[in-house]
């Protein structure tokens, strides 16, 4: 075992496999993600990239291997998943804000109700976060009155409210109208520049090239390629990667 790599990694996949019945969704995945890295996971639809990211906070169970998050085995029986999930932020494709709560209440919900933090402290911090994503003035609005881009920025603030060391993004911009993609990417870039550890499933190749430390390319449940963006874009001659990039370009 390479002890030094293990220590530095905040998320590590150790030979992880997952089946849906007969269908193998993830196949022998082994990845280490060190603190502070921005990892972009991409691949054609059905390649297992969303499944991969959902196993990190236990939304999807796995059948084989281990996932260690900040020193804890996510899928071990004795692990308190709810405790663990406070250490990892998750941003959904469809935002999944709570429509019956104001924007501010969405952000303070977990700190106040789950972590039992003092209300004033939670609200102050939430307002700072909203200010950071550029939505301070929307604190008292309800999610139903926000655009998709605004909702996703609130969702990011909600994830940050728990001060997690890692944050996971599951296709955060693919449900958005094109003109709103930029505002969300901007928030994500600023997070990256502050040294946040991020795992992003996304098709935004510009984002990957600009802020990604590493690109993991998946196909049919397997990691095909795991390299720096420079290597990925310039030198990759893998046929499936070529086809994927061509498809992306055609859409754009």
């Amino acid at each position: 075992m390479n002890a030094t790599v293990r220590d530095a990694a905040i998320v590590s996949f150790d030979n992880v496999s997952k089946w849906y019945g007969e269908y193998r969704a993830l196949e022998n995945i082994s990845i280490d993600i060190p603190k502070g890295q921005v990892v972009v996971v991409c691949g054609p639809s059905g390649s297992g990239k969303s499944t991969l990211i959902r196993t990190v906070n236990g939304l999807e169970p796995i059948q084989e291997g281990r996932i260690i998050l900040d020193g804890t085995d996510v899928h071990a029986r004795k692990t308190d998943l709810n405790q663990l999930r406070q250490k990892v932020g998750f941003v959904f494709q469809h935002f999944n804000l709570f429509p019956h709560m104001s924007v501010l209440d969405n952000v303070t919900f977990a700190p106040i109700k789950i972590q039992k933090k003092p209300k004033d402290e939670a609200r102050d911090f939430a307002r700072k976060l909203l200010d950071r994503v550029g939505l301070a003035e929307k604190a008292d609005t309800f999610p139903g009155f926000l655009s998709g881009g605004q909702q996703q920025r609130v969702a990011i603030a909600r994830a940050l409210a728990l001060r997690p060391p890692v944050i996971l993004f599951d296709e955060p911009t693919s449900a958005l109208d094109p003109e709103m993609v930029g505002e969300v990417l901007l928030v994500m870039k600023s997070l990256a520049s502050e040294g946040m550890t991020m795992v992003c499933v996304t098709h935004e190749m510009g984002f990957a090239r600009e802020v990604g430390d590493r690109i993991v390319f998946m196909d049919q449940g397997k990691v095909i390629l795991d390299d720096t963006p420079d290597q990925f874009f310039s030198k990759s001659d893998h046929p499936r990667v070529q086809r994927f990039l061509a498809d992306i370009r055609r859409e754009a």
Binding site: L81, N82, Q86, F92, H94, N96, K113
Partner: peptide, 24 residues
Amino acid sequence: TQFEAASSLGCSYLQSMRYIVVPQ
């Protein structure tokens, strides 16, 4: 997905029901 979002924030089953699902 509402349930998933609550779980991702660390809600137990009962907390998710109480704060997120039942009020809606």
